Simulated scan of single mutants.
Amino acid sequence: IVSEAAKLRYRSAGQFTSPITVRSPYGGGIFGGQTHSQSPESLFTHIAGLKVVIPSNPYDAKGLLTAAIEDDDPVIFFEPKRLYNGPFDGWHKNPVSPWKTQELAQVPTGKYTLPIGKARIMREGSDVTILCYGTMVWVSLAGAEHAGVDAEVIDLRTLVPLDIETIETSVKKTGRCVIVHEAPKTSGFGGELSALVQERCFYHLEAPIARVTGWDTPYPHAFEWEYFPGPERVAEALKSVMTGGR
Protein backbone atom coordinates (compact mmCIF):
# COMPACT_ATOMS: atom_id res chain seq x y z
CA ILE A 1 0.00 0.00 0.00
CA VAL A 2 2.78 2.41 0.95
CA SER A 3 4.66 1.64 -2.25
CA GLU A 4 1.62 2.32 -4.41
CA ALA A 5 0.87 5.55 -2.51
CA ALA A 6 4.40 6.75 -3.24
CA LYS A 7 3.79 6.30 -6.97
CA LEU A 8 0.48 8.17 -7.09
CA ARG A 9 1.90 11.61 -7.97
CA TYR A 10 3.94 10.11 -10.83
CA ARG A 11 1.17 7.84 -12.16
CA SER A 12 -1.34 10.70 -12.21
CA ALA A 13 1.08 13.10 -13.93
CA GLY A 14 0.96 15.34 -10.87
CA GLN A 15 -2.83 15.55 -10.71
CA PHE A 16 -3.11 13.70 -7.39
CA THR A 17 -1.12 13.64 -4.19
CA SER A 18 -0.95 11.01 -1.47
CA PRO A 19 -0.98 12.66 1.98
CA ILE A 20 -0.65 9.47 4.02
CA THR A 21 1.39 9.12 7.22
CA VAL A 22 2.12 5.64 8.59
CA ARG A 23 3.40 5.43 12.18
CA SER A 24 5.31 2.35 13.25
CA PRO A 25 7.22 1.24 16.36
CA TYR A 26 10.79 0.52 15.38
CA GLY A 27 14.06 -0.94 16.60
CA GLY A 28 15.11 -2.96 19.60
CA GLY A 29 16.47 -2.69 23.08
CA ILE A 30 13.25 -3.68 24.87
CA PHE A 31 13.69 -7.47 24.76
CA GLY A 32 11.12 -7.80 22.00
CA GLY A 33 12.97 -10.64 20.32
CA GLN A 34 14.04 -11.14 16.73
CA THR A 35 10.66 -10.49 15.12
CA HIS A 36 9.67 -7.39 17.05
CA SER A 37 13.02 -5.59 17.21
CA GLN A 38 13.87 -5.13 13.56
CA SER A 39 15.13 -1.95 11.90
CA PRO A 40 13.75 -2.03 8.32
CA GLU A 41 14.38 1.60 7.37
CA SER A 42 16.55 0.77 4.35
CA LEU A 43 13.65 -1.13 2.73
CA PHE A 44 11.53 2.02 2.74
CA THR A 45 14.26 4.45 1.69
CA HIS A 46 14.45 2.40 -1.52
CA ILE A 47 10.87 3.33 -2.51
CA ALA A 48 10.85 6.41 -4.75
CA GLY A 49 8.50 9.11 -3.51
CA LEU A 50 8.28 7.86 0.09
CA LYS A 51 9.66 10.01 2.90
CA VAL A 52 11.23 8.33 5.94
CA VAL A 53 11.35 10.02 9.35
CA ILE A 54 13.00 8.71 12.56
CA PRO A 55 12.95 11.08 15.57
CA SER A 56 15.16 10.64 18.63
CA ASN A 57 13.25 12.71 21.20
CA PRO A 58 9.74 13.97 22.05
CA TYR A 59 10.23 17.54 20.79
CA ASP A 60 11.31 16.36 17.35
CA ALA A 61 8.66 13.62 17.32
CA LYS A 62 5.75 16.05 17.66
CA GLY A 63 7.12 18.64 15.26
CA LEU A 64 8.06 16.12 12.61
CA LEU A 65 4.82 14.13 12.96
CA THR A 66 2.76 17.28 12.44
CA ALA A 67 4.84 18.12 9.37
CA ALA A 68 4.42 14.57 8.07
CA ILE A 69 0.63 14.67 8.44
CA GLU A 70 0.50 17.98 6.56
CA ASP A 71 2.83 16.76 3.79
CA ASP A 72 1.27 15.96 0.41
CA ASP A 73 3.54 12.93 -0.04
CA PRO A 74 3.41 9.63 1.88
CA VAL A 75 5.60 9.47 4.98
CA ILE A 76 6.59 6.49 7.09
CA PHE A 77 7.25 7.63 10.63
CA PHE A 78 9.41 5.23 12.65
CA GLU A 79 9.24 5.61 16.45
CA PRO A 80 12.15 3.98 18.32
CA LYS A 81 10.59 1.73 20.97
CA ARG A 82 13.60 2.08 23.25
CA LEU A 83 12.81 5.77 23.66
CA TYR A 84 9.10 5.55 24.49
CA ASN A 85 9.71 5.40 28.25
CA GLY A 86 12.50 7.92 28.36
CA PRO A 87 16.04 8.53 27.09
CA PHE A 88 18.89 6.44 28.33
CA ASP A 89 22.54 7.26 28.78
CA GLY A 90 23.59 5.10 25.83
CA TRP A 91 24.55 2.12 27.95
CA HIS A 92 21.98 -0.58 27.27
CA LYS A 93 22.26 -2.20 30.69
CA ASN A 94 21.31 1.00 32.47
CA PRO A 95 17.69 2.00 33.12
CA VAL A 96 16.11 4.95 31.36
CA SER A 97 15.79 8.33 33.01
CA PRO A 98 12.48 10.24 32.89
CA TRP A 99 11.93 12.34 29.80
CA LYS A 100 10.65 15.14 32.02
CA THR A 101 14.23 15.86 33.08
CA GLN A 102 15.39 16.37 29.50
CA GLU A 103 15.39 19.64 27.58
CA LEU A 104 14.20 17.92 24.39
CA ALA A 105 11.11 16.67 26.23
CA GLN A 106 9.79 20.16 26.88
CA VAL A 107 7.11 19.92 24.21
CA PRO A 108 4.80 22.89 23.59
CA THR A 109 1.11 22.14 23.91
CA GLY A 110 0.33 24.18 20.83
CA LYS A 111 0.93 23.28 17.22
CA TYR A 112 4.40 23.54 15.72
CA THR A 113 6.24 21.81 12.90
CA LEU A 114 9.83 20.95 12.11
CA PRO A 115 11.06 20.80 8.52
CA ILE A 116 11.31 17.32 7.06
CA GLY A 117 14.78 16.90 5.60
CA LYS A 118 16.72 18.97 8.13
CA ALA A 119 19.22 17.32 10.49
CA ARG A 120 20.02 18.45 14.04
CA ILE A 121 23.57 18.87 15.32
CA MET A 122 23.32 17.28 18.76
CA ARG A 123 26.94 17.94 19.69
CA GLU A 124 29.42 20.19 17.95
CA GLY A 125 32.97 18.95 17.48
CA SER A 126 36.05 19.24 15.31
CA ASP A 127 37.71 15.80 15.25
CA VAL A 128 35.18 13.45 13.61
CA THR A 129 31.59 13.46 12.37
CA ILE A 130 29.12 10.85 13.67
CA LEU A 131 26.01 10.28 11.56
CA CYS A 132 23.18 8.58 13.46
CA TYR A 133 19.43 8.56 14.05
CA GLY A 134 16.84 7.26 16.49
CA THR A 135 18.11 5.42 19.55
CA MET A 136 21.66 5.47 18.24
CA VAL A 137 21.85 9.23 18.75
CA TRP A 138 22.12 8.62 22.50
CA VAL A 139 24.54 5.73 22.03
CA SER A 140 26.73 7.93 19.82
CA LEU A 141 26.80 10.74 22.37
CA ALA A 142 27.86 8.26 25.06
CA GLY A 143 30.45 6.72 22.74
CA ALA A 144 32.04 10.10 22.01
CA GLU A 145 32.29 10.81 25.73
CA HIS A 146 33.68 7.33 26.42
CA ALA A 147 36.34 7.74 23.74
CA GLY A 148 37.29 11.24 24.83
CA VAL A 149 37.02 12.41 21.22
CA ASP A 150 35.75 15.83 20.14
CA ALA A 151 33.06 14.36 17.88
CA GLU A 152 30.34 16.25 16.05
CA VAL A 153 27.17 14.18 16.47
CA ILE A 154 24.51 14.70 13.81
CA ASP A 155 20.98 13.39 14.34
CA LEU A 156 19.74 12.92 10.77
CA ARG A 157 16.06 12.89 11.88
CA THR A 158 14.92 12.14 8.32
CA LEU A 159 16.58 9.69 5.94
CA VAL A 160 14.51 10.71 2.91
CA PRO A 161 14.88 13.54 2.14
CA LEU A 162 18.41 13.59 3.55
CA ASP A 163 20.11 16.75 4.77
CA ILE A 164 23.24 16.15 2.73
CA GLU A 165 24.34 19.78 3.06
CA THR A 166 24.75 19.53 6.84
CA ILE A 167 26.57 16.21 6.47
CA GLU A 168 28.92 17.55 3.82
CA THR A 169 29.73 20.70 5.79
CA SER A 170 30.55 18.71 8.92
CA VAL A 171 32.69 16.04 7.25
CA LYS A 172 34.69 18.64 5.33
CA LYS A 173 35.34 20.34 8.66
CA THR A 174 36.36 17.23 10.62
CA GLY A 175 37.90 15.09 7.87
CA ARG A 176 36.56 11.89 9.41
CA CYS A 177 33.21 10.09 9.54
CA VAL A 178 31.64 7.32 11.63
CA ILE A 179 28.13 6.04 10.83
CA VAL A 180 26.03 4.37 13.54
CA HIS A 181 22.73 2.50 13.15
CA GLU A 182 20.91 -0.46 14.73
CA ALA A 183 20.17 -2.36 11.54
CA PRO A 184 22.59 -5.03 10.25
CA LYS A 185 25.54 -3.72 8.26
CA THR A 186 24.82 -5.59 5.01
CA SER A 187 22.54 -3.43 2.83
CA GLY A 188 21.89 -1.09 5.76
CA PHE A 189 21.30 2.63 5.22
CA GLY A 190 24.83 3.27 6.45
CA GLY A 191 26.09 1.96 3.12
CA GLU A 192 24.20 4.72 1.30
CA LEU A 193 25.50 7.32 3.74
CA SER A 194 29.04 6.07 3.31
CA ALA A 195 28.79 6.27 -0.48
CA LEU A 196 27.42 9.82 -0.36
CA VAL A 197 30.16 11.00 2.00
CA GLN A 198 32.83 9.38 -0.17
CA GLU A 199 31.43 10.94 -3.35
CA ARG A 200 31.14 14.43 -1.90
CA CYS A 201 34.00 14.62 0.59
CA PHE A 202 36.68 12.28 -0.77
CA TYR A 203 39.50 14.83 -0.85
CA HIS A 204 38.72 15.97 2.70
CA LEU A 205 38.76 12.51 4.31
CA GLU A 206 41.80 11.69 6.44
CA ALA A 207 40.69 8.13 7.26
CA PRO A 208 38.34 5.47 5.85
CA ILE A 209 34.67 5.88 6.77
CA ALA A 210 33.69 3.54 9.60
CA ARG A 211 30.30 1.89 10.17
CA VAL A 212 29.12 0.70 13.58
CA THR A 213 25.95 -1.37 13.16
CA GLY A 214 23.92 -4.30 14.37
CA TRP A 215 25.37 -7.74 13.69
CA ASP A 216 24.43 -9.43 10.42
CA THR A 217 24.04 -12.79 12.15
CA PRO A 218 22.59 -13.06 15.67
CA TYR A 219 24.18 -15.52 18.03
CA PRO A 220 22.33 -17.72 20.54
CA HIS A 221 22.01 -17.14 24.27
CA ALA A 222 22.77 -13.42 23.95
CA PHE A 223 20.80 -10.54 25.39
CA GLU A 224 19.02 -8.44 22.78
CA TRP A 225 21.07 -5.34 23.54
CA GLU A 226 24.21 -7.27 22.60
CA TYR A 227 23.05 -7.23 18.96
CA PHE A 228 23.13 -3.46 18.79
CA PRO A 229 25.99 -0.96 18.91
CA GLY A 230 26.94 0.29 22.34
CA PRO A 231 29.24 3.10 23.46
CA GLU A 232 32.26 0.77 23.56
CA ARG A 233 31.93 -0.18 19.88
CA VAL A 234 31.34 3.44 18.90
CA ALA A 235 34.40 4.50 20.92
CA GLU A 236 36.55 1.86 19.19
CA ALA A 237 35.51 3.16 15.77
CA LEU A 238 36.22 6.75 16.81
CA LYS A 239 39.69 5.87 18.02
CA SER A 240 40.33 3.93 14.82
CA VAL A 241 39.46 6.78 12.48
CA MET A 242 41.47 9.18 14.63
CA THR A 243 44.57 7.09 13.86
CA GLY A 244 43.84 6.90 10.15
CA GLY A 245 41.84 3.68 10.30
CA ARG A 246 44.71 1.58 11.58
Results as ranks from 00 to 15, higher is better:
residue 82 R to L: 06
residue 96 V to C: 07
residue 56 S to G: 15
residue 92 H to F: 13
residue 116 I to Y: 09
residue 111 K to H: 13
residue 95 P to Q: 14
residue 87 P to F: 03
residue 62 K to Q: 12
residue 88 F to E: 01
residue 85 N to A: 09
residue 73 D to A: 15
residue 99 W to V: 02
residue 71 D to K: 08
residue 106 Q to H: 13
residue 115 P to Q: 13
residue 69 I to M: 10
residue 84 Y to A: 04
residue 101 T to D: 14
residue 103 E to G: 02
residue 101 T to Q: 10
residue 56 S to A: 15
residue 103 E to V: 02
residue 75 V to R: 13
residue 96 V to H: 14
residue 61 A to F: 04
residue 110 G to L: 12
residue 71 D to N: 13
residue 78 F to N: 10
residue 117 G to W: 06
residue 86 G to A: 02
residue 92 H to L: 05
residue 89 D to Y: 07
residue 116 I to G: 06
residue 105 A to M: 11
residue 62 K to M: 05
residue 99 W to F: 05
residue 87 P to V: 03
residue 57 N to H: 14
residue 104 L to P: 00
residue 106 Q to A: 12
residue 99 W to A: 05
residue 104 L to T: 03
residue 54 I to D: 07
residue 114 L to A: 10
residue 81 K to R: 12
residue 85 N to Y: 04
residue 99 W to K: 11
residue 62 K to S: 10
residue 113 T to D: 04
residue 104 L to G: 00
residue 55 P to T: 09
residue 66 T to E: 02
residue 112 Y to H: 10
residue 113 T to L: 09
residue 114 L to H: 13
residue 70 E to L: 15
residue 78 F to K: 14
residue 100 K to Y: 09
residue 56 S to W: 06
residue 108 P to N: 10
residue 114 L to S: 13
residue 55 P to V: 08
residue 77 F to V: 01
residue 64 L to P: 05
residue 97 S to V: 09
residue 88 F to Y: 05
residue 85 N to T: 00
residue 117 G to T: 06
residue 83 L to T: 02
residue 82 R to E: 01
residue 95 P to W: 14
residue 65 L to K: 15
residue 103 E to R: 13
residue 109 T to I: 06
residue 85 N to P: 00
residue 74 P to R: 15
residue 113 T to N: 11
residue 85 N to I: 00
residue 54 I to F: 12
residue 62 K to T: 06
residue 117 G to F: 08
residue 69 I to Q: 11
residue 79 E to A: 06
residue 66 T to N: 15
residue 116 I to E: 07
residue 56 S to D: 12
residue 101 T to R: 11
residue 74 P to N: 11
residue 70 E to P: 02
residue 60 D to H: 14
residue 72 D to W: 04
residue 79 E to L: 09
residue 97 S to L: 04
residue 67 A to M: 07
residue 106 Q to P: 02
